[in-house]
Amino acid sequence: MLPAALLLCFASALLCYLASPQQRLRAAPLPKWTRLAALACAAGGAGAWVDVLGVGAGLFTALTALMLGWVGLPYAAWYAGREERR
């Protein structure tokens, strides 16, 4: 259950990032309906974390996983762009 919870949270962060107009990993952002898919993944990930750890720890762990994804994706985009410029 832990890998599923982590993957759902990271998938949510990735979909949210790729649907943003400021994303740099794709030439064009994903359609706006993918934000709903990101919300569904976040809810599923939070539910999975709550099932494993309980309400308090599960919600904070889900938020931590989401924040880790949201912080890491711009750095991944920067690194990918740096490799293209060489």
Results as ranks from 00 to 15, higher is better:
11 A>C: 06
39 L>M: 14
5 A>K: 07
75 Y>N: 09
35 R>G: 13
48 A>T: 00
71 V>H: 14
27 A>S: 01
52 V>I: 08
11 A>Y: 01
21 P>R: 09
55 V>T: 07
84 E>L: 11
30 L>R: 11
77 A>Y: 02
23 Q>F: 05
60 F>W: 15
75 Y>G: 06
76 A>I: 09
4 A>F: 11
58 G>I: 05
41 C>A: 14
20 S>L: 02
85 R>K: 10
78 W>Y: 14
8 L>N: 02
42 A>P: 01
60 F>T: 09
18 L>H: 02
37 A>N: 07
18 L>T: 01
25 L>N: 01
36 L>F: 13
36 L>Y: 14
22 Q>E: 13
73 L>F: 13
63 L>I: 00
77 A>V: 07
58 G>V: 06
13 A>D: 04
10 F>D: 02
34 T>Q: 09
24 R>H: 11
39 L>H: 12
13 A>I: 05
57 A>M: 14
69 G>T: 03
76 A>W: 07
14 L>D: 00
80 A>I: 00
40 A>F: 11
12 S>C: 13
57 A>L: 15
39 L>P: 03
71 V>F: 15
23 Q>I: 04
38 A>V: 05
1 M>I: 01
51 D>H: 13
43 A>Y: 12
80 A>R: 13
43 A>E: 06
58 G>Q: 01
14 L>I: 07
86 R>D: 10
18 L>F: 03
16 C>K: 05
59 L>S: 02
8 L>H: 03
35 R>K: 13
84 E>S: 09
35 R>F: 12
56 G>L: 08
51 D>S: 15
24 R>N: 11
83 E>M: 08
11 A>S: 10
73 L>D: 11
51 D>N: 12
4 A>H: 06
23 Q>M: 02
80 A>G: 03
58 G>E: 04
42 A>Q: 07
